[in-house]
Design a protein around this nucleic acid. Structure first.
Length: 479
RNA sequence: GGCCAGGUGGCAGAGUGGUUAUGCAGAGGACUGCAAAUCCUUGGAUGCCGGUUCGAUUCCGACCCUGGCCUCCA
């Protein structure tokens, strides 16, 4: 089955054709590790993971590369800005590297909590400075740069296709336009769209990390790291490059300009961009400081799976509106899903017949939505259809859900395969359960209810089923 | 100012030139000692105005509104 993807370059749906049959190399822009990733950031990584797993399902051998940006960026506007990494380091009385490590670890923990597969290569900007310098030298040798004010700039007028990804009209580009209160135009630039490849004259005092280079001691510009590392790990031609929509106009245009100026040929075949998570008042912003992290949600009693389910209910190319009402709806949906799975497990235990033909139909239907630009909302609808089907046997439903979970990563497979004894109760509680069952047989409801409360106080939840059967669950994990 | 993306029921969110997916929430009912879960039934929407059409939520145009990018950000 073929995969259709929406290519930001050209703004249209295209059939995906890998450069090398059977293989896919793709690069996703990773986090800047000066603070926690917020749930808006995380939505983009959920999308990347869905892409990753869909490609896997199609049988591709995947090389997924992600950068970790651990060199400084501005916190504020123009000259009053500070190095974000340095600022955080000072606040925490730590070194910049310690800060980077701390937030990189936090990011990886978030990724794990959301059942996101680790990229095959996770590369840090600070470990690739020499490669960046080498690349910049080549770009310079090819005649695309100029020195001004101590910094080496990329001259976009030397690259004919600048703006092709974002439909930029260079004559209309305004330096410092937008909602900024303080506008500081870099007087060194020949063109407002030019950007720095290498800084030696830092805008801020005491840049935390600097390196020697042919242009003087300094640090790399903000765009060169992705070009450098993508080429190092994926070669001169990559299949897919992903990121958030905010990257389209500046970061990715600049990456293309640098990379193709160096390569002399097209660099990336498919550009894919994830839309933002919206709050009532606009996007969630890392640099504004107040944002929701996955940990915040967990502290409020929400499982990471609830947030992941929420992400799947909207298409990656449309902005999603986050609210706690919406998250509660995702939570209820997810818990309902889990209950139905447990229900089906009980049914399958008594009748494990399957209907492979129908199973296949549901799987094909699910896949057809996923293979059509990752249409997770419709794929989710297929999942519910299968679950509520009157004709699909319980065992087949479970088989189908295991398939779904390969892509969605909602811990469904864990629920399906977890044996009932996976939740171990103490011998003392086992006796209480036994006593309660006896009380129920005797229709001694008062004792039964008291014992149920007692079990609850021990963290043991119990649900009564027909025929004097029951089901235990961990009450501390139920919300 | 330029560019981009949207406006669908209480919430979230799809598809579609002709009975508006799906989930949550709501209402009614079944089952149940209770609880939980499950099942059945059900009401409710396409920003505004024109145009094309036998027919538009879908196509076209104007308008209104929202969000994003043009500073690092997913």
């Amino acid at each position: 089955m073929s995969l259709r993807l929406y290519n930001t370059m050209g703004r249209k749906m295209e059939e995906f054709k890998p450069i090398t049959p059977g293989h896919v190399g793709f690069y996703g822009c990773g986090p800047t590790v000066y603070n926690y990733a917020h749930i808006g950031n995380l939505r983009a990584y959920v999308f990347l993971d869905i892409l990753d797993k869909t490609l896997q399902l199609l049988g591709y051998d995947i090389k997924h590369v992600m950068n970790i940006t651990d060199v400084g960026h501005l916190t504020g506007d123009g000259d009053d800005g500070e190095d974000k990494m340095k600022k955080t380091a000072e606040e925490r009385h730590q070194s910049v590297l310690e800060v980077a490590k701390f937030y990189t670890d936090a990011f990886m923990a978030d990724i794990d909590a959301l059942n996101i597969r680790h990229p095959d290569v996770i590369c840090k900007a600070t470990e690739h400075i020499q490669e960046m310098i080498d690349l910049i030298k080549q770009i310079e040798a090819n005649g695309h740069t100029y020195m001004a004010g101590g910094n080496l700039y990329y001259d976009i007028s030397t690259y004919d296709d600048y703006g092709k990804l974002a439909n930029l009209n260079l004559d209309e580009l305004k330096a410092g336009a937008g909602k900024r209160k303080v506008v500081v135009v870099d007087e060194n630039k020949r063109n407002p769209g030019d950007f720095v490849l290498w800084f030696t004259k830092s805008k801020f005092e005491d840049q935390a990390m600097t390196w020697d280079s042919p242009w003087g001691r300094g640090y790399p510009g903000w765009h060169i790291e992705c070009s450098t590392m993508a080429m190092k790990y994926l070669g001169e031609h990559l299949d897919i490059h992903c990121g958030g929509i905010d990257h389209i106009a500046v970061h990715h245009e600049n990456e293309i300009a640098q990379s193709e100026a160096f390569l002399g040929h097209q660099w990336v075949n498919y550009w894919m961009h994830a839309a933002f998570l919206q709050l009532k008042d606009g996007k969630m912003s890392k640099s504004k400081g107040d944002f929701l992290t996955l940990d915040t949600l967990v502290d409020k009693g929400y499982k990471p799976e609830y947030y992941k389910y929420f992400c799947l209910t909207s298409h990656y190319r449309t902005s999603a509106n986050f609210s706690f009402d919406a998250l509660d709806a995702a939570k209820n949906s997810y818990e309902s899903l889990i209950n139905k799975i447990i229900e089906q497990k009980n049914l399958a235990r008594e009748n494990d017949s399957v209907d492979t033909e129908q199973e296949k139909q549901f799987i094909d239907s699910f896949n057809s939505f996923m293979f059509n630009d990752l249409k997770t909302p419709q794929a989710l609808a297929v999942m519910w259809d299968a679950l509520k089907s009157n004709t699909l046997p319980a065992k087949s439903k479970l088989n189908f859900l295991e398939h779904v979970d390969k892509i969605f990563g909602l811990s469904l497979t864990d629920v399906i395969n977890k044996s009932e004894s996976g939740f171990v109760v103490s011998p003392e509680d086992e006796k209480i359960i036994e006593q309660r069952q006896q009380a129920r047989i005797n229709k001694d409801w008062k004792t039964s209810d008291e014992l149920r409360n007692l079990l609850a106080s021990h963290g043991v939840g119990i649900k009564d089923l027909p025929d004097n059967k029951y089901q235990l669950f961990d009450i501390t994990k139920a919300i």
